[in-house]
Amino acid sequence: MRGEPESGTAAGQGNVRVSVVVPVYNVEEYLEQCVTSALDQTHEHLDIVLIDDGSTDGSGALCDDLAHRDPRVRVVHQENRGLSAARNAGLSLADGDLVTFLDSDDWWDPTFVATLVEALSGHPEAGTAVSGFVRMPGEASSMPTRTLRLYSVDESLGLFAGQHHTLLTISCAKLFRREVIHDVRFPEGRLHEDEFTTYRFLARAPAVLVPKHLYLYRQRPGGIASQTLTPDRLLDAVEAAEQQERDFRAWGHPAAAAWAGDQALRKRLRLIRLLASAGRTTEARQQETALTAAVRTDGELPHSLAVRALRQMARMSPRAAAVGFDLATRSRALIARAGSPGTART
């Protein structure tokens, strides 16, 4: 374990070129704050790639204006193809030694890049540096350490497959070495692109965690994080968890594979209920069949007793398991609300 880096940029580290991939779609109101936060970084050697993904407001013109103001900014305009395609386009153009992702309605603390560059420079074995983030408005992400710490691949995947899943899953609030990203690309047409992708970066090299909240994550109406949970979104989440389980099995990480399998099970049970409540009976039955097949390929993964019982129920009756899981979830939510501060009790 090594000490926390000082803010600023150490001698020689300022020469490290960092590519910043910024997908842009209809964020005229927030884009200037986002890009300005990148241009104002204490680490100045930046390659900022704005991918205008077919914006229909003034975002595209603002991208061009920002590029005219500072030669570190480049712009590509393309037809609307979605977040993954925009990130992939940025990756194909990025020429920095290190790469990071910044969503166009978010912004950075001025020391974000310098702090993560220094963390990677001090840990040459690490492929990823991870910062905490703050939801705006909202709370700061929890961190597994109070001091800068290097985590092995096994340890990083353990954090991913646990209470720090969101911190390790989002592709933003991280700085990657190019060789860690290499040939991995975000899946186009998916709604949970980070769930399919970021863990693959973490599996390639250790990660260094910086216990500072340097990424500001805007919560806004109409943003991706605020979108209603639909069957299509939930199906993507199921398939991402199943991909994780397969990969973790193949890579020899049984605990992470068990966690991913548990997530796939719970999400598919929710999906069955969501489809049934929407009157999409045929699709619900298809998911019941898929669930039955999934729980029969359990292997010897270290599931908890509660999950083993749920999987056994799903083998016997997927529909009953979905109903029971839904009722249990609702009951837990009611109990949590009843026990929260300020809640009236009768």
Rank of each mutant, 00 (worst) to 15 (best):
77 H>E: 01
84 S>Y: 01
89 A>S: 11
108 W>S: 12
70 D>N: 13
97 D>C: 05
102 L>F: 12
106 D>H: 06
74 R>E: 11
114 A>L: 10
68 H>T: 15
105 D>F: 15
83 L>F: 10
79 E>Q: 06
75 V>C: 08
98 L>Y: 14
102 L>A: 11
91 L>T: 04
111 T>P: 09
115 T>M: 14
70 D>I: 06
105 D>C: 14
91 L>H: 04
66 L>E: 03
101 F>G: 08
86 A>F: 01
102 L>E: 06
93 L>K: 02
112 F>D: 08
75 V>T: 14
67 A>P: 09
89 A>Q: 06
73 V>Y: 04
116 L>G: 10
77 H>R: 07
66 L>C: 08
115 T>A: 15
98 L>F: 12
113 V>N: 09
87 R>F: 01
94 A>I: 08
98 L>W: 12
79 E>M: 02
100 T>A: 10
112 F>Q: 10
103 D>C: 07
72 R>Y: 09
84 S>A: 07
103 D>V: 06
85 A>I: 00
68 H>E: 15
114 A>W: 11
92 S>D: 15
91 L>R: 05
81 R>S: 02
92 S>P: 06
86 A>H: 00
101 F>H: 08
114 A>P: 09
79 E>F: 05
84 S>F: 00
80 N>T: 07
96 G>S: 13
112 F>C: 12
69 R>W: 11
85 A>Q: 02
66 L>R: 03
111 T>V: 13
96 G>K: 03
103 D>R: 07
105 D>L: 13
85 A>M: 00
102 L>Y: 10
98 L>R: 12
95 D>G: 06
112 F>N: 09
67 A>F: 06
